[in-house]
């Protein structure tokens, strides 16, 4: 099997209970089972993970970098969406 024919997978690792899975990189593997094993071997060598997800890269729909302006710039002027303007009462403590 030539390397070019082996599908690409995206790897997500959850490092601790309660945290969400985080994208850590990608790898080549012929199928999902071997992708999971390769992810274990490549990305959890130093005790990084408690759970692994692998997703075929082709299953990911990505935004087009050329659309950056339309997609993301309009939020720049809407600072009121950040919760920094609200006064949190003392009694609430750490949120």
């Amino acid at each position: 099997m030539a390397a070019a024919e082996i599908p690409l997978w995206e790897v997500f690792i959850r490092s601790r209970n309660g945290l969400s899975h985080k994208h850590v990189g990608s790898l080549h593997a012929p199928d999902a089972t071997l992708a999971l094993q390769a992810a274990r071997d490549l990305y959890t060598r130093r005790g990084e993970g408690l759970s692994i997800w692998v997703v075929p890269s082709h299953a990911i729909t990505a935004s087009d970098p050329a659309d950056k302006g339309m997609m993301f710039e309009p939020t720049a002027s809407k600072i009121y969406r950040h919760p920094t303007f609200y006064e949190v009462p003392e009694e609430v403590g750490h949120m």
Binding site: L27, H28, A29, Q37, A38
Partner: peptide, 11 residues
């Protein structure tokens, strides 16, 4: 044969 398996064998 491939980087992924290289790591698996080394592990």
């Amino acid at each position: 044969p491939m980087m992924e398996e290289e790591m698996a064998l080394a592990n």
